[in-house]
Design a protein around this nucleic acid. Structure first.
Lengths: 214, 214
DNA sequence: GCAATATTTGACCGATCGGTCAAACCGATT
DNA sequence: AATCGGTTTGACCGATCGGTCAAATATTGC
């Protein structure tokens, strides 16, 4: 396996980080290689020396995030326990990862909503989490209809990730900085509250169903 | 009040629609005026004849969406009734609007996650809905903490809008096209189920609180 | 010390970008 | 037929885009 440029050279790492910040701040098309070079305190040609093209640099940025994302979630995904325990654990892991990688929500939303150039890369990233939700919720949710597992995947993805992207826009309207520590713990509690609510609701659906079939 | 170009000329309307489709498909920076002209079957200079600059054309695209969005929601927002009725009504109006404007979710997610060039435009668009949620939930939710109204604004925004953006990415992984009519009615039921769940949950929180204080 | 190797730079390339403008074109009006 | 206002076009502009390359500069191994 070949070693990526940012692990060989500290300069390459600085370039990658500059690209990371700029892309998350604007967008892939909105950032030029000159911007990246300038932000990294380096001449443009050097960027091409380490990363051969703009697409390659960009790929390294999101591939690194995706790998980190999967790594952060894998341990919490593989664990055992009740559905409730497992769900809370994955939510915590997801929130931990986002708070340690503040630019991730913007990046992934750009990917999903923007030009579908790297569509299968995003899909490969979301697939394990999707499969996990599918498998986990199959124990407590019907296999099809409005309460099927895949709806809860989208629902919880939205609940978790949208807070961070909307925070930038809506922050000024709020009484408090949405990204300050106390607000973030509030948000975390909110998501967990929603999770318990859904699991309780699904349980109620099941008992009502069995009552009705009796 | 001045008449916008697309209401004076059918050609201008075609150009605007082409810009609409391309921007939603890719992104503002990712689309050139030549692309727009070609998609509209027109020479580039004509685009500048009707819309004086790329920024102006782009502004017309999103302004039109925002106006339509507010128009579609205003009647459901202004109505009266129980909190539950009002919430279900606004959700239905939001979903109706999205299904009539399929490119809207991608556009708004691009705006929120992308370069914050038009940040206050987005804010003006989201503000009325945010204020409405704030006012409506104040009757049933605590004024601060994890169950404050603003958390439910973000939560429901995410639940409603994320489905459509994720659908494009995750569709191939699903057993069914996420945007086919039956899947959309399932999703609508899912959102309404979540709404009832939240309102019931908040009611339970309130009675537990008053029990505890007794 | 020198030579080989890796890093960094400035100058340059063709293509494309957003934008301008004068001229051609068009259907009415007289 | 002449003309006139709105429409459409082709040619062109300077700036910037992603990308290349040879030369200059550090760094390493001997």
């Amino acid at each position: 396996m070949r070693v990526p440029p940012e692990e060989r050279s500290a300069t390459a790492a600085r370039i990658l980080q500059a690209a990371d910040e700029l892309i998350a701040e604007v967008s892939y098309e909105g950032v030029s290689m000159r911007d990246v070079a300038e932000a990294a305190g380096v001449k443009k040609a050097l960027v091409f020396y380490y990363f051969n093209s703009k697409a390659e640099l960009f790929d390294r940025v999101i591939e690194r995030y995706y790998a980190a994302h999967l790594g952060a979630l894998s341990s919490s995904i593989e664990g055992s326990g009740s559905v409730r325990d497992r769900l809370h654990r994955v939510i915590d892991a997801y929130l931990d990862f986002i708070e340690a990688n503040r630019r991730y929500p913007r990046l992934i939303q750009q990917q999903v909503a923007g030009g579908n150039v790297h569509l299968d890369l995003i899909r490969r990233n979301l697939e394990p989490l999707f499969e996990w939700v599918q498998a986990t919720f199959s124990e407590v949710a019907p296999s099809h209809g409005p309460l099927a597992a895949r709806h809860f995947f989208v629902t919880f993805s939205g609940i978790v990730i949208n807070y961070y992207t909307y925070a930038v826009v809506l922050g000024p309207l709020w009484s408090e900085d949405p990204l300050c520590p106390s607000a973030l713990t509030d948000r975390r509690s909110h998501v967990h509250w929603m999770a318990d609510l859904v699991l309780d609701g699904l349980e109620r659906e099941r008992t009502e169903d069995s009552d009705r079939s009796r």
